[in-house]
Computed example of a mutant assay.
Amino acid sequence: MAGYRGSCVSADTEATSGSVIDFDRQTVRGVEGNGTNSDKLSVLKAEEWDMSNPVRIIGFTSSAAPNTVQLTRPIHTKETEMLLVSDCHQLAAFYPECTDMTDCSSVKPKTAISFKDYVLPENCIQSDTESCPHLYTLGTENGMTYSVEEIGKLEGINDNNRRKGSDNRQLFALYRNDVEMVEGVENLQILYGLENNAQTQYCDAKQLEDSSACPGNITHIRISMVVASSNNVHSVSESQSFDILNHGSDGTLTKNDRRLRRVFTTTIQLRNKR
């Protein structure tokens, strides 16, 4: 789930001051495409560090070793990877600092985050860490990114060798983190629903940058995808128009060829948002 904050804090727990993520506005975000060009969508959510052999938190210090988190075993991380820590009542998200990033048994935030009020559960002890909070990763800044790309282009395949349709024209697909997922997706549009005074306002990624124009917390996302056949279906070229989730004059996508297309639209509620 977008914005997932771990198993031992509630879904509306706010991050400690100094954290690098505002969970109510930044766990789903994107890049607005020019005109009717496709948008990009990025999703951030917490994932346990090594689910097969979890890393747990056994201490917070803010005196002798300022703002340090002690772990049950060393981890191999990097400065661009966001970590999430919690005492099951409050949480913090940060980029880590460590003397040796390949062997970190304790980490500290690059930003000024205070752990002085963090208190681990009473039954969390070094000899029995099963009740200690998990260490989570939020991945890199962009999280899980979805985009529409020409098949073969990201992979560095020469244009003449890329997979094409029966009309010898390029094919497109939905990609996740630069890996092809679904062939035939030609257009992706995203709108973000923000709740403010019991009203939901939908903004695009560009509008979302202005918190005064689009106030509130993101509670929904609306998605439209135009999917095309890889082969010619119509006997002659036909002009086709599709309503897509763009504001203003860019809300219609027009194509003129022999391929068959359909537009799919859905609204997703981010249930773990408050």
Rank of each mutant, 00 (worst) to 15 (best):
M225K: 10
N187T: 12
Q199M: 01
R222F: 03
V236A: 09
E180D: 02
S237P: 13
N177I: 09
N231G: 10
Q201D: 11
I223C: 00
E209L: 14
H234E: 06
E186T: 15
D204T: 08
L194R: 14
H220Y: 14
S224G: 07
E183N: 09
D178P: 02
P215C: 07
S211R: 15
A198K: 15
N197K: 14
L194T: 13
A205T: 06
S237G: 14
I223R: 07
L194Q: 10
H234F: 14
L188C: 10
D178N: 14
L194K: 12
N217W: 07
P215Y: 02
A213M: 05
N217P: 07
E180I: 14
E195N: 12
G193E: 02
M225G: 02
V227M: 03
T219I: 15
Q199G: 00
V182Q: 07
L191M: 08
D210Q: 07
A213D: 08
S229A: 07
S229I: 10
E180Y: 01
G184N: 07
A205C: 02
E183A: 11
N196H: 13
C203R: 03
N187C: 11
N187W: 02
V182R: 06
N232L: 10
E180R: 11
A213P: 00
T219G: 04
N232E: 15
N217V: 14
H234V: 00
M181I: 13
V182A: 00
N232V: 09
E180F: 03
I221S: 00
D178M: 03
R222H: 01
N217L: 06
Q189E: 14
D210C: 09
Q199P: 00
V233Q: 09
S235E: 13
V227D: 00
L208N: 10
G184L: 02
N231V: 15
D178A: 11
N231P: 11
I190R: 07
E209M: 12
V226A: 06
T200A: 02
E183C: 03
S230H: 08
V185Y: 05
L208C: 08
H234M: 08
A213F: 05
A213I: 00
E209N: 11
N232T: 12
S235T: 15
